[in-house]
């Protein structure tokens, strides 16, 4: 089944735009069919139904029913490969 990934940041503008692109490329390179949705972290709680994973550049203000990864690595460039792998692992199941 096609997966849905929510990519969030504080304002839903700057850092999530960069992370969205990175995640889309990651999925493409690994042949994973998934929809990547960009949003504000405040919208995540109401949008998590039907989604499979949250990738957030900012702190998570609450806990969610679906897995979440903090993606600051894509902004700082430190630990990107590790994060790639974590995201892929989440989507394997």
């Amino acid at each position: 089944m096609k997966k849905t990934i929510l990519v969030a940041c504080g304002a839903g503008i700057a850092t999530s735009t960069v992370v969205c692109n990175r995640v889309e490329n990651l999925l493409k390179d690994n042949g994973i069919q998934a929809e990547v949705v960009q949003c504000k972290i405040s919208e995540v709680a109401s949008r998590q139904d039907g989604a499979d994973l949250i990738v957030s550049t900012t702190i998570l203000p609450t806990t969610y029913q679906i897995p979440a990864e903090i993606a600051t690595a894509y902004i700082t460039g430190i630990g990107m490969d590790k994060l790639d792998q974590k995201i892929l692992d989440h989507l394997k199941n």
């Binding site: 940041c9 504080g10 304002a11 503008i13 700057a14 850092t15 972290i41 900012t58 702190i59 203000p61 600051t72 902004i75 700082t76 460039g77 430190i78």
Partner: peptide, 22 residues
């Protein structure tokens, strides 16, 4: 926004901040 969702980034040898808002 900075209070709720801070924008400080820690690189290995230095730190930088990218404040922005709506």
């Amino acid at each position: 926004r900075e209070e709720t969702f801070p924008t400080g980034l820690n690189l290995d040898k230095y730190s930088i901040a990218i404040p922005h808002t709506d």
